Computed example of a mutant assay.
Amino acid sequence: MLEALAGTGLAAAAGLNAYIPLLALGLLSRFSDLVALPSGWTWLENPWVLGIMGALFVVEVIADKVPALDTVNDVIQTAVRPAAGGIVFGSGTSAPTAAVSDPSSFFESGSWIPVAIGVVIALVVHLAKAGTRAAANTALAGIAAPGLSVAEDVVSVLLVVFAILLPGLVVVVLAGLIAALVIVIRTARRVAARRREKAALAAL
């Protein structure tokens, strides 16, 4: 159960920012005892891989905070984030962590199954994020993009931290994320409706 929650938290984090969970697993496995990646996933802690992911992370952080460019970035990330979700779910559910000491019995058969689950989770989160961002940008002329992006990065980091240290809290963070997305969408719709009303009155 803890393995599933840890993998879900990592995959959901990848749906918000592909490189935060990838970097976290690689760096923690390389420089700490909090994560011990199994042999099939040790490439994540390779210095060259970490360097490339670090550079891509910087690009992602900047692009995601610029109105209009964030929409283009979301289109590109439609392939990247689900792939990252598959990687972190697959590696995370098979790696001993601070909270999970013996993950060997989880998904014993079919190594592709956890990867597929991670892809689906990350894709769902990514589509929800992209849809919410598009609605907010349309209603608020893009001014909310930087704030929303920072909030998404913070949630992604929290999901990774809880997935590794306190998997049970992943459910709480995901519930909060869903509630926040609903609030943002409803607020954007109200703002857009008010703008249409003002435009209609001005045209009279």
Rank of each mutant, 00 (worst) to 15 (best):
29 S>I: 05
162 F>S: 13
52 I>Y: 06
127 L>K: 08
137 N>M: 10
95 A>Y: 03
79 A>V: 15
162 F>H: 10
185 I>A: 12
201 L>D: 14
147 G>Y: 10
163 A>G: 04
54 G>K: 01
149 S>P: 05
52 I>A: 14
54 G>C: 08
141 A>Y: 13
66 V>F: 04
59 V>M: 11
92 G>Y: 03
110 G>Q: 09
185 I>H: 04
112 W>P: 01
183 I>D: 11
35 V>Q: 08
118 G>K: 07
162 F>W: 10
130 A>R: 04
119 V>P: 06
165 L>M: 13
172 V>T: 12
111 S>F: 11
200 A>N: 05
96 P>G: 09
1 M>Y: 08
100 V>F: 06
149 S>D: 06
194 R>Q: 14
141 A>H: 13
80 V>F: 02
154 V>R: 02
65 K>W: 06
27 L>E: 07
26 G>C: 01
79 A>D: 03
192 A>M: 11
187 T>P: 04
78 T>E: 02
71 T>N: 10
115 V>N: 05
200 A>M: 12
109 S>A: 15
159 L>W: 01
90 G>H: 05
175 A>H: 01
91 S>E: 03
43 W>D: 07
111 S>M: 11
179 A>N: 02
186 R>F: 04
185 I>T: 13
129 K>H: 15
99 A>C: 05
123 L>E: 13
51 G>T: 06
19 Y>Q: 01
94 S>P: 00
193 A>E: 14
112 W>S: 12
155 V>T: 14
104 S>C: 01
133 R>A: 15
94 S>T: 14
177 L>W: 15
91 S>I: 09
199 A>N: 10
1 M>E: 11
119 V>T: 09
197 E>G: 01
13 A>L: 08
13 A>E: 09
52 I>E: 03
203 A>Y: 06
83 A>M: 13
50 L>E: 05
71 T>P: 00
91 S>H: 03
75 V>H: 00
46 N>C: 05
31 F>R: 12
183 I>V: 13
82 P>E: 00
155 V>L: 11
72 V>H: 10
127 L>P: 09
200 A>D: 13
144 A>H: 02
142 G>R: 07
111 S>L: 12
190 R>V: 11
44 L>R: 01
168 G>I: 07
85 G>V: 06
2 L>M: 14
114 P>S: 09
198 K>V: 15
15 G>Y: 02
97 T>K: 00
188 A>I: 01
15 G>D: 06
78 T>D: 12
202 A>P: 00
107 F>G: 11
167 P>A: 01
136 A>V: 06
166 L>S: 03
68 A>V: 15
71 T>I: 11
57 F>L: 09
75 V>D: 03
69 L>R: 08
82 P>S: 01
72 V>S: 12
112 W>D: 11
33 D>A: 13
82 P>Q: 07
191 V>C: 06
131 G>M: 08
45 E>F: 03
22 L>D: 04
118 G>D: 04
136 A>G: 10
178 I>L: 14
125 V>H: 00
168 G>Y: 09
109 S>M: 12
102 D>E: 15
59 V>R: 00
150 V>M: 03
180 A>Y: 13
130 A>C: 07
160 V>L: 04
129 K>F: 10
103 P>M: 11
180 A>Q: 10
200 A>R: 15
23 L>G: 07
116 A>Q: 08
58 V>N: 02
121 I>L: 07
146 P>I: 09
136 A>D: 12
44 L>M: 15
